[in-house]
Computed example of a mutant assay.
Amino acid sequence: MATRYKLFFFALILASFNLRPGITSISPVLHGITDDLGMSSTSASLLTSIPLLCIGLCSLFAGRLANRYQSEKIIAIFIACIGIATFLRFFTNSPIYLLITALFIGAGIGIVSPLMSGFIKSYFPDKVPLMISMYSTSMVVGASIAIGLTTPIQHWYNDSWKIGLGFWSIFALMAVPLWFRVIRHPHTLKYKTAQQNRASLPIKNKQAWLLTSFVGIVILLFYCFAAWLPAIVEDKGYASSYAGLTGTISMIAQLPATLLLPLLLRAVPSRRFWITFFTLSEIIGLALLSFTNITPVVASICLGIGAGGLVSLTLLLPIDKTNSPIEASTWSAMTQAIGYMIGAVGPFIIGLLYDYTGSFLPTMYLLIGIGFIVIFLGWKLTEPSSKNVG
């Protein structure tokens, strides 16, 4: 039994590695892409916005697939989809081609992500906060490796950003064989009631809608930083290599928040406190970039700590508010479906405003205001009287 749970644990980790690099690997080589393919900032922003939109749309089908088929098989198939789409980036020859790969990567992430919540609740029911921490930490590690090594890989291979992007299909190559082993040794719970088997999106649940709004704005902030932080730093007059470094540091700074979240929640169980703390960290980072000349590394650390904590909480809250693995999957599907659609707007707006104004400063002010909305929604979501009243 211990060996089986090790298999499930490592399958979770390797699946998580695949859920960010297809998006975060774009930002370090964004200037090379726009120069080679003749893309504007607005069109380049679609390389982040399209996957987010696809994540949202495809998340709507994750719960249905989990009801109808073995969820482990679905996860394995769509990890393979992510890997194939990433591998095809080796052969990019036009903006449309690159955008199509982004679409399929987003579709794969959109199916896998909400199913992982049900997987955790099913396989690790007594260790949910710890497994959420491992899950979110693994995503951060995958994103950090991709954003940190894409440019070096590009330089190692004839300055080809295509190789820098396509290289990250290696994560799927590592994960898929392990998931085929999970399929042969499933631990999927058999739900005892027809009501559970018919579990659907909680569209009539006010708490689910409040959580969805919260998740959407958190995702919007996260991917605005992931897509544009290096460009924002470069626009302040720093070298491109330094700007790329700040993006990597921001990703690495997420690790303490994701790794230590179970300990933090044990010390201070209040979700409201940590939502406020992590959001203020992001607001401080934005303020440092906007109003001071302090090295952007400090701002990137603040942004990373805040983003890591908030994203981890968005993964935990649907599990907090549900009573079964399939219900956790459907809540996660709804929050991610609509949440990622909201999030997809952020990188596009930044690119559009930059093309229009020639400056990132207006968007920085906008993001600071959005940060205070996150705090407001977080407080409403964690009111003592808040209950799952599906």
Score class of each variant (00 low, 15 high):
210 L>Y: 09
211 L>Y: 02
212 T>S: 11
212 T>W: 10
214 F>S: 09
214 F>R: 12
214 F>V: 04
214 F>Y: 15
214 F>M: 09
215 V>H: 11
215 V>Q: 12
216 G>K: 09
217 I>T: 10
220 L>G: 13
220 L>R: 03
220 L>H: 08
222 F>L: 13
224 C>K: 02
224 C>M: 08
224 C>F: 11
225 F>Y: 15
226 A>N: 12
227 A>P: 07
228 W>A: 10
229 L>T: 01
230 P>D: 05
231 A>W: 00
231 A>C: 02
232 I>A: 09
232 I>F: 08
232 I>L: 14
232 I>P: 08
232 I>H: 06
233 V>C: 03
235 D>N: 14
235 D>Q: 09
235 D>C: 02
235 D>R: 04
236 K>Y: 02
237 G>V: 00
238 Y>L: 05
238 Y>N: 04
238 Y>K: 06
239 A>T: 14
239 A>K: 08
240 S>R: 12
241 S>V: 04
241 S>G: 05
241 S>T: 09
242 Y>H: 11
242 Y>C: 07
243 A>V: 00
245 L>M: 13
246 T>R: 10
246 T>I: 06
248 T>K: 13
249 I>T: 08
250 S>Q: 13
251 M>S: 12
251 M>H: 06
251 M>R: 03
251 M>L: 07
252 I>D: 03
252 I>R: 06
255 L>C: 13
255 L>R: 12
257 A>R: 02
258 T>H: 10
258 T>K: 10
259 L>T: 10
260 L>D: 01
260 L>K: 05
261 L>N: 13
262 P>A: 11
263 L>D: 02
263 L>T: 05
265 L>K: 14
265 L>N: 13
266 R>H: 12
266 R>L: 05
267 A>K: 13
268 V>K: 10
268 V>C: 03
269 P>H: 03
269 P>A: 01
270 S>I: 00
271 R>Y: 08
271 R>A: 03
272 R>L: 01
273 F>K: 03
275 I>H: 04
275 I>C: 02
275 I>K: 07
276 T>Q: 14
277 F>L: 06
277 F>P: 02
278 F>I: 00
278 F>N: 00
278 F>M: 00
279 T>A: 05
279 T>L: 00
281 S>Q: 05
282 E>S: 13
282 E>D: 12
283 I>F: 01
283 I>Q: 00
284 I>K: 09
284 I>C: 11
285 G>K: 08
285 G>S: 06
286 L>W: 15
287 A>H: 12
288 L>A: 14
289 L>T: 15
290 S>I: 11
290 S>L: 15
290 S>M: 14
291 F>A: 15
291 F>Q: 15
292 T>S: 15
293 N>W: 11
294 I>Q: 08
295 T>C: 08
295 T>A: 13
296 P>F: 07
299 A>I: 03
299 A>D: 08
299 A>Q: 09
300 S>I: 02
301 I>R: 11
303 L>S: 04
304 G>C: 10
